[in-house]
Each structure stands twice: as C-alpha cells, then as structure tokens.
Design a protein around this nucleic acid. Sequence first.
DNA 1: CTTCTCACG
DNA 2: ACGTACGTGAGAAGC
Length: 405
Amino acid sequence: MYPVLADIEIPLAEVLSSMEIEGIRLDAAALHSFGEELLPKIDGLAGEIYAAAGHEFNIGSPKQLSVVLFEELGLPAGKKRKTGYSTDADTLEALRDKHQIIPLIFEYRTLTKLYNTYVRGLEAAVSPDGRMHTTFKQTETRTGRISSAEPNIQNIPVRTEIGRNFRKFFVADEGNLLADADYSQIELRVLAHLSGDKAMIKTFCEGGDIHTETAASVLGLPPEWITPEQRRSAKAVNFGIVYGIGAFSLAKDINVSVAEAKRYIDDYLTHYSGVREYMDKVTKSAEKDGWAVTMFGRRRFIPEILSTNKTVKALGKRIAMNTPIQGTAADIIKIAMVRVYRRLKAELPEARLILQVHDELIVEAPEEKAAQAARILTEEMQGAVKLAVPLTADAKEGRSWYEAH
DNA sequence: CTTCTCACG
DNA sequence: ACGTACGTGAGAAGC
Ligand SMILES: [Mg+2]
C-alpha cells in the first residue's frame, strides 16, 4: 500500500539507529593539535588585515567588513543583501586583484571556518567513548535524503587540501579498518534511466568518462580531442541540468557570456533530446497533480508551481525537475543501506555500517575482514536496483576516512 | 531569533 | 524589468 514506507523507511529506521549508536572514532588529540597550528596563522592574518585596513575591526562581521571594503577602501560594491552590500566569496572573487586585503580575507575566512566549525565544533561533539554519534534525521528533507546533525558528519571538508585534513581524524578503532564505497555519478545515471534518453544511456553503457563523452557528443568531436576546459564546461552543464539550470546561472558559474551558456544548454538538450522531453513531462505533471514523484513512488508536493509570482513558479519547475533525480538517488542508497546492513549481519557480524554521505557508505571492520566488507559494500550498492544503465560503486580501505575515500 | 556566510553531496 | 541552480547544518554577528 505504501511501498516507500514499508519497503524502505521502516527497515531503514533500524539501520540508522544502529549507525548512530555505533558512531565513528575521532582522534581528538590530533584534531586538537591541528587546531593549535591554525590559531597563530589566523592571528597573523588578522594582523595583516588590520594593517591593510589601517585599523582594527571585527573581520567576522559582514557589516563592519563592508564598511572597510566599500567605504574606507573605496572598492566597488556588488550585490546587495537585505541589510547591506554582500561580502560573500563570489563578490570578493571579483575584487581579488583590486586590493591586497582581499586574498587575506579569503585566507582568514577559510581558516576561521575550519577552526570554529570543525576544530571547536567537533571537539565539543565527541562523546566520552571517544566517538562521534551523529543524529541521522529521517524525516527532515523535502527530497527523501537523510540529514545529519549534532554533529553534521555529511559536510566534513574534502574539496581543499587543508580542509581535507579533517578526514584524517575520523579513524577506525584499533585493529579495525574503514571500508568506504561511493556511487559514481548516481544522479546522472538516474537521469539517464528516468528520461530513457538513448544517447545518455549509450554513453553510460560504454563506460567512458561522462563529462568528456558529453563534451564530445555535443560538440561533435572525438573524445580524445576534448580539452580540460571543454570537459569542465560539460561537467558544469551536466551538473546544472540536474538542477533545472538557466543560462544566466550557468554563465556565472563557468564564466562565459549568457549567450554562450544558452547555446551550451540548447546543444545539450538537442543532443540529449530525451532529457528535454523528460523535463517537459515532469514539469507538466507537477502543474497538473501538484507533486513530483521518484522512481519508487515518493512524492513531494510543490505548491510553488502554481504561484502567480513567476520567480516562485520558476523555482517550482526547478524543484519538479530536480526532486525525482535527487529523490530517486536517495531511495537507491537507502535500499543499499538496508541490503548492506542485512548482509553484514548474516555474513560478517563483526563489521558495522557507520556513515552515509548521500552517495557514499562507510563500514568499520576488523583489519582481516575489511576486504570482505568492501566487497559486500560494492555488491550491495551496485545491485540495489536495476536501471537502464550500470550502477557502479568504487570501494577503498584505510585507517582513516582520509585514506579510505 | 534572523541574517550572512560557507562546509558538504 | 526582474531574478536567476537543487538539497542540507552550523557558527558568528547583531537585533
Ligand atoms: Mg561519488
């Protein structure tokens, strides 16, 4: 009657509960000494920023910072917020070469973010058993994803090398290893499946690099001719398509003219014409029914799509395009989690599923069982559902999350 | 408490 | 003319 509830969410509740109770070990001493190394760097940067500004002020206050940048130093102000001029990363990026203070602000923001959120925050969240026990919220998101809080272990830094260091402090207990597996391009594979687009399905079935293949197909060139720049653009388009992107935002993202961005999107949707038809279909049905639906029948109501405010209605359409993709990917990894949990319980009870990060699962297992745990992870993730394209997951083992990912 | 900013997929 | 990519959680500032 309610297959998402009965077949996915109810079985998943026990899995999430077990993951929270198990937790993951934090190397608190190493985390602390990393923090102690950050502090003098933050201090030094603050001094340089005060010197560049000509006086001390609270760098962490966007209000005070905008007075320094846009009034005292006379830098050109950009976007406005409700309460004043924006000082966010996009705005500062445009000013990077205009004043020596800008790169210092970037560095200061990066280091204080890492220190405040990930040194102090994680230190405060470690339990007496030396492990982090997050709360996985099962009924929080609109799309069917789970979220993680107190502490959030789904936004631990990875994109920059300095931030990535924090993953060294998430470790396996003595005698254990972490096995980590993540899905390759799960959202684009879901899009290929849901849209049934022949060209996109073919690309995934042939097993090449999706972004390179997309660039080659759209531009009509052999894949080996694709430059890194062309691949980056194709990647941004692939990414944007999943969000129901417009030319304006794509242009801003990859730094081309709006006209050029519009051509990229147009060429993409002409080549992957099944994707254009699919997007039309899901927005129409959301307007008619008032909801979007995932592959397994999870519904999200979208009142925005009936709004008379066209900005809100446009948001409704993007939600209608994105929710089936993000939500189906969420359904799939939830199914995989229940499969992994059951299979470990039956075949490798010393191993524990401990973390989920949207397209990634982490198991902790005794050293000598870690390879087997990794195999089980890969098999159960890849076999969770049958799609029109292969679903692949790559596993790795290590002493820490840094090593295993 | 809201706003701004920034970390993740 | 206007606004402009989906989904989250957390810390600091300031009201
Ligand atoms: Mg991945």
